[in-house]
Computed example of a mutant assay.
Amino acid sequence: MGVPKKRTSSMRRDRRRAANFKIKPANVTKCPKCKEPVLSHRVCPSCGTYKGEQVTESV
């Protein structure tokens, strides 16, 4: 059975663990009506539409 000969340093241990927590960019798309950037599956903040339907009043 494999047993480590030396203790793993905290820097090496933390660097290995940090590889699993990479930040991914937000999934931004364009609104089909007003062409403004919108997060996916959210109501457009500028025109108030979602899936082609008017959901909120536009400002």
Rank of each mutant, 00 (worst) to 15 (best):
M1T: 13
E57F: 07
R15N: 12
D14W: 02
S9M: 04
K51H: 12
V43I: 15
P37W: 09
C47I: 04
V3I: 08
R42D: 00
A19E: 05
C47S: 04
A18P: 01
A26R: 14
K30T: 06
M1W: 05
S46E: 08
G48H: 01
K30Y: 12
S46Y: 09
R13P: 01
E57K: 13
V38N: 03
Y50L: 11
E53W: 06
P25H: 01
G48V: 01
Q54E: 02
C44V: 02
S40E: 12
N20S: 08
V43L: 09
F21T: 12
V59Y: 06
V59Q: 08
Q54P: 03
C34A: 10
N27K: 12
P45M: 06
F21D: 11
R15A: 15
V43Y: 00
K51Y: 10
C34R: 05
S58Y: 02
T49S: 08
P45S: 12
A19Y: 01
K6S: 12
V3P: 00
K5N: 10
P32R: 11
T49I: 05
R17N: 13
S46H: 07
Q54T: 01
A26T: 09
M1K: 12
C31W: 01
Y50M: 08
A18K: 13
Y50D: 03
A18W: 03
R7C: 03
K5D: 07
V3T: 13
P37M: 07
K33E: 02
S10Q: 14
M1Q: 09
R17E: 12
G52A: 08
C44P: 00
C47Y: 00
C34W: 07
T29R: 10
C31T: 00
K35A: 02
V28R: 10
R42F: 04
H41K: 15
H41R: 14
S9R: 11
Y50C: 03
C47N: 01
P32H: 07
P37Y: 09
C31L: 06
R16F: 08
V59T: 04
S58F: 02
D14L: 09
V59P: 06
A18R: 10
T29F: 14
E53M: 14
E36C: 02
R12T: 05
P45Y: 01
P25D: 09
K51N: 15
T8Y: 10
K35P: 00
M11P: 03
E36D: 07
V38T: 09
K33C: 04
T8E: 11
C47H: 04
G48C: 04
R12K: 08
P4R: 14
I23V: 15
V28L: 15
S58M: 09
S46G: 00
V43H: 01
F21E: 07
E57I: 10
K35D: 04
P25Y: 01
K22A: 13
K33I: 10
E57C: 04
H41C: 02
E57Y: 04
K22E: 14
S9K: 10
N20W: 11
D14C: 07
N20C: 05
I23W: 08
S10K: 13
T29C: 14
R7Q: 06
G2I: 03
I23R: 15
R17K: 12
A19K: 06
